[in-house]
Amino acid sequence: MQRIVIDVLGDLGGAVIDGLGRLGRAALFFGRVLGVSHRVLRRFGQVTREMRASGVRSVLIIVVSGLFVGMVLAVQGHDVLQRFGASDSLGVLVALSLVRELGPVVTALLFAGRAGSAIAAEIGLMRATDQLSAMEMMAVDPVARIVGPRFYGAVFSMPLLAAMFSVLGVFGAWLIGVRLIGIDAGSFWSQMQATVDFRHDVLNGLLKSVVFGVAVGLIAVFEGFHAAPTAGGVSSATTRTVVISSLAVLFLDFVMTTWMFRG
């Protein structure tokens, strides 16, 4: 019995120490990535390539998801609002939900699954097949050449994708609310415009998605870069990327929401 307790405590302590060590290494790695920013951004063609790989190829899933989330919000929101005779506020409800929360968060979660995992797998595989070592031996820093462009590709893509998600969501809500249910188009838009504030809601939402872009991008390149050079190592790097970035996005969202929308 005593032994079991010691075992459990030992496992717990080991996990915590392991986790803290990882966090520290991730922070150092973040510093390294930021340190080569000027070199990465000067050769923007590299970043453009990665934006196509992660951003452009995520457009379809973002657009479709945004549309459906918006339509579902409209159906559910209308169901609740009409009990209070407030169907006209549907636009407000949908727009605020999307712009403040669902746009940035769902986009980040989808992006982690669609692009983050791919980035981690790609870099992990390059590690496993010595491509990163080969690059180092050619006097080329893989952090500047491989990691940096992918990181910035994610950072730049995320807010653009989140904006698309929100717009398609509003469009979906308009389709259901105005075209199907028959809410007055005028009050749908005017109430939305009267309530949604550019700086407080729209800009804060975009700021959130930039932070999520940094988080997901960093986790993906970190996990890929430090993957064990085996098939198992690459697969666990991919899984970890999706799991850790999803948790990080939700946690950061909570922190930022309490900070931004407390009032």
Binding site: T48, M51, R52, G55, V56, V59, A95, V99, F156, S157, P159, L160, L161, A163, M164, S166, V167, V170, W189, M192, Q193, A194, V196, D197, F198, D201, V202, G205, L206
Partner: peptide, 22 residues
């Protein structure tokens, strides 16, 4: 392609700013 992507994203942001956020 990336230009189109960026343009679409910025357009969406402008839409949010003007049409949704007024």
């Amino acid at each position: 392609l990336v230009g189109l992507f960026v343009a679409a994203g910025l357009l969406a942001a402008v839409f949010l700013a003007l049409k949704v956020g007024n």
